[in-house]
Amino acid sequence: MGEVLKFHFDVDGENFSSAGEASVVVKKKLRQLGFSPDIMRRVSIAMYEGEINMVIHADGGTADVTVDDNEITIVLKDRGPGIPDVSLAMQEGYSTACDNIRSLGFGAGMGLPNMKKYTDFMQIDSEVGVGTTVTMKIKLN
């Protein structure tokens, strides 16, 4: 490939129905670029979970995806309430989502652990009252 590809998306926090649109676009782009189904699936699931989190918890944010020869990097940034205890949030089944979100099929406390599971690297930088940035990388080799 040689060149570095960058994609930027604004994630609308007002509309639950449209959550995940950026992940759909990224999956399509990766398919056009000829990536394997496994890579496409891992990237799109990790990003989709992140997008859903941003809509549920943080009133939206931005998503930036960078593709180079070695890895795909996803950076999800929001100005939401922040995560007071990241290690607690990483526990499977822990969720602060309200019942309304559960009735929509999400908020089982699997999002962050799932994002970690599908990626080779994940870092959460969060400050209460300021926002959260999640950086994920998927290696290509």
């Binding site: 129905s17 449209s18 995940g20 699936r41 799109s44 699931i45 929509l104 099929g105």
Partner: peptide
């Protein structure tokens, strides 16, 4: 039995 667009997106993500 769930009805909202995220059902379709989830199915799509999972191939």
């Amino acid at each position: 039995g769930l009805i909202n667009p995220q059902v379709i997106r989830t199915a799509s993500m999972m191939d």
